[in-house]
Design a binder for these strands. Structure first.
Length: 491
RNA sequence: CGGGGUGUAGCGUAGUCCGGUUAGCGCGCCUGCUUUGGGAGCAGGAGGUCGCAAGUUCGAAUCUUGCCACCCCGACCA
């Protein structure tokens, strides 16, 4: 993506959509704002789920499932929460259809109107806290550490595949604690889980931080987030972890008897990541040849393409290919042997390149003679011929190398696209000509942030957790500031 | 909801201003032969209510009116 910013912005959407479609990840559906996740795209999501789910379990959480429908009245209980989601809810008002009296198709049966409308969950805090009320009486019932894998619906006006669809898949953790301290620790623990996942699985460096009040989750006391930088210089919120204080406990009247015998409100957290991460993966690593997947999340880590001219050669080559696949399988490497006779090697090379398969092995008659293989890596597009002896070790090491290289590349990109701005002119100039993260002083007020957003579309992505305190003046107002915060235009 | 745009084969499109043979092309698909170490070549073939409806006309993809759908930009948002 070596293009100037203007060209990048213009072409980026097109480039992104092409990768999504050509790689077979997803396509737009007949339902407005929704998408069909195709098998290959879903396989990536399953890899993400597996890795995340293990980390959730390792930190003491269990999976559960709560209803898709939420009674409308639940939403009015937490004022900020309803304010935040009211504008983007899908609402079920009826439960029956009937034939149109005029004989043309099917219409809603007005007699089948629900007494209370049901909201299709945009997030599950309300129904979960309504349930937790019945589960919690004593401090002995705490903590509750639950996660659910689910779909949610937010009626977005403008959608983009994976990044913002009306329906999306995610996980949402909802925990209940006896003390504020414990809840804050949980919030931070899960933020670290997300950051670890982004770094070690997605090969994407992220900034950990807290949101400004303007950007905070509706109903939260504090929102922690991980922010990633995409190749077009825009920021992407990749995950959030919320400290909800006692807001939902108070709204849903969830109290527990403490060891001292007092009735106290429960402390809460919630945290989530979504299929948006697939969008992040695409935008962080892909190139003009297509998708580039980090080995740890690639559904197919190695593809073997046999090359032959006739039946005799096919038999020789395929035997070797099967042997190699067997070796790699034994080492836990997800390997596909593409022995289809209906496509030519060149076609296959291109297909797996577009799909971002980290390593391709080609085996032909020449290789049989010389006991070699052709190894091609997706991240650098380099091809080398290597000995077929010990191929399993070669591949294991190469996969690790690719994983690390992708991370380092993304990190370098972020570093060279993180810029300090000390004046308003600099701030504007960087936004318009370079993009990326801008480290700038801010006077800490919501009004200033709002003005900056209106003037430039840039928002505060986060206030980094490991921030250095540094005296300065706000880029917009000139008022005193104690630290730089991260600004960017965002998805 | 504002502003702009587009609907022609599975996908992408030409033709529309200025009505006139059988609606053309590329990709894909099917058959055959030759091919196979970077998206194969040649030959043959299948596939169309030109978004829907009404109107004008000898004649409509093309003009008129109404409707529908989708896309882009903005407002909203992860």
């Amino acid at each position: 993506m070596a293009r100037d910013l203007a060209a990048r912005e213009e072409n980026y959407s097109k480039w992104y959509n092409e990768i999504v479609q050509k790689a077979g990840l997803a396509e737009n559906s007949a339902v407005r704002g929704c998408m069909v996740i195709k098998p290959y795209g879903y396989a990536i999501w399953e890899k993400m789920q597996a890795a995340l789910d293990k980390m959730f379990k390792d930190t003491g959480h269990s999976n559960a499932y709560f209803p898709l429908f939420i009674p409308k009245s639940f939403f009015s209980k937490e004022a900020d929460h309803v304010e935040g989601f009211a504008k983007e809810c899908a609402i079920v008002t009826h439960y029956r259809l009937k034939s149109d009296p005029s004989g043309k198709g099917i219409v809603v049966d007005e007699d089948a109107k629900l007494e209370e409308e049901l909201i299709i969950r945009p997030t599950s805090e309300t129904i979960i806290w309504d349930t937790y009320r019945n589960w919690i009486q004593s401090y002995r019932d705490l903590p509750i550490l639950i996660n659910q894998w689910a779909n949610v619906v937010r009626w977005e006006l403008r959608t983009r595949m994976f990044l913002r669809t009306s329906e999306f898949l995610w996980q949402e953790g909802h925990t209940a604690h006896a003390t504020k301290q414990e809840a804050i620790e949980e919030t931070e623990r899960m933020l670290n889980v997300y950051a670890y996942f982004a770094h070690n699985f997605m090969a994407i460096p992220v900034l950990k931080g807290t949101k400004s009040i303007n950007e905070r989750f509706a109903g939260a006391v504090e929102t922690y987030c991980i922010e990633a930088l995409m190749q077009d210089g825009k920021a992407l919120q990749a995950g959030t972890s919320h400290f909800l204080g006692q807001n939902f406990a108070k709204a849903f009247d969830v109290k527990f008897a403490s060891p001292e015998g007092n009735l106290e409100y429960v402390w809460a957290t919630s945290w989530g990541v979504s299929t948006r991460l697939i969008g992040a993966l695409i935008m962080a690593h892909s190139d003009d040849h297509g998708l580039v997947l980090p080995p740890k999340l690639a559904p197919i880590q190695v593809v073997i393409v046999p090359i032959y001219k006739n039946q005799g050669q096919f038999e020789l080559v395929i035997e070797k290919a099967r042997e190699v696949k067997g070796l790699l399988d034994k080492h836990g490497i997800s390997t596909k042997l593409d022995d289809r006779d209906t496509y030519k090697p060149g076609w296959k090379f291109n297909e797996y390149e577009v799909k971002g398969v980290p390593i391709r092995i080609a085996i032909g008659p020449r290789d049989i003679e010389s006991r070699t293989l052709e190894l091609a890596r997706r991240d650098t597009l380099e091809k080398v011929t290597c000995s077929s002896d010990g191929i399993e070790n070669t591949v294991v090491h190469l996969l690790e190398k690719i994983q690390e290289n992708l991370y380092q590349k993304a990190l370098k990109f972020r570093e060279s696209n993180t810029t300090k701005a000390d004046t308003w002119e600099e701030f504007i100039d960087i936004l318009d000509n370079k993009g990326g993260f801008i480290m700038a002083h801010w006077d800490g007020t919501a009004e200033t942030e709002q003005k900056i957003k209106e003037a430039t579309k840039a928002t505060i992505r986060c206030i980094p957790l490991d921030n250095n305190k540094e005296k300065g003046v706000c880029v917009l107002t000139g008022n005193p500031s104690t630290q730089r915060v991260v600004f960017a235009r965002a998805y």
